[in-house]
């Protein structure tokens, strides 16, 4: 889970930087272009070295903008793909969990507790989140483990890990 998250953070920063440079270059290009047009209207000639330099600068800036835009689109496409696949995985995982919980016949309270256990929340925190005694949470956990036919926390995880890693035959 950490690796793609970190990757997307780097990409997000990169995308922002690209966008900022694009805007800066584009604004400068427009400024140069306006100056060229003003000079043209004024004396109608393109023979000045100053004019040519400005035109070349405008062209270079414009070309740079297009180049950076293509790069930005690539970064954004990567981010969107990552976003979508994460969402699909999350959605499917939630469904898988739901199917198992139903199959095991967990009560609503047990479902709640089991989900928090899967999220890595410790018993004391679960108790305070649910406003119950730690003893109650421990009892609910024991009930969940026995309904699921596992020894404890680690084995409960492995039920879902196995599902995730299973290769369809």
């Amino acid at each position: 889970m950490t690796a793609p998250k970190m990757g997307s953070k780097t990409d997000e920063r990169r995308a922002f930087l690209l966008a900022a440079v694009i805007v800066l270059q584009a604004v400068t290009a427009v400024f140069f272009l306006a100056d060229v047009v003003a000079d043209l209207i004024h004396d109608g000639k393109l023979d000045d070295i100053h004019m040519w330099l400005e035109l070349v600068a405008t062209g270079a800036l414009g070309g740079g903008v297009i180049f950076l835009m293509v790069e930005l689109r690539r970064v954004m496409t990567r981010l969107a793909t990552l976003d979508r696949s994460m969402r699909a995985a999350q959605g499917e995982m939630a469904e898988v969990i739901d199917v198992f919980f139903t199959e095991w016949g967990l009560t609503p309270a047990e479902r709640d507790v089991a989900l928090m256990v899967l999220k890595g929340i410790d018993n004391d925190t679960i108790a305070s989140l649910r406003g119950t005694a730690p003893g109650t949470v421990r009892a609910q956990c024991t009930s969940v483990y026995s309904k699921a036919g596992v020894d404890g926390r680690a084995q409960l995880f492995s039920v879902f890990m196995e599902e995730l890693l299973a290769v369809e035959g």
Partner: peptide, 18 residues
């Protein structure tokens, strides 16, 4: 100038953007 530059950028982005 900045406002026009921004809009021009957006118009190009409307063709080749995300």
């Amino acid at each position: 100038y900045i406002a026009v530059g921004l809009v021009a950028t957006r118009l190009v982005w409307g063709v080749i953007g995300t």
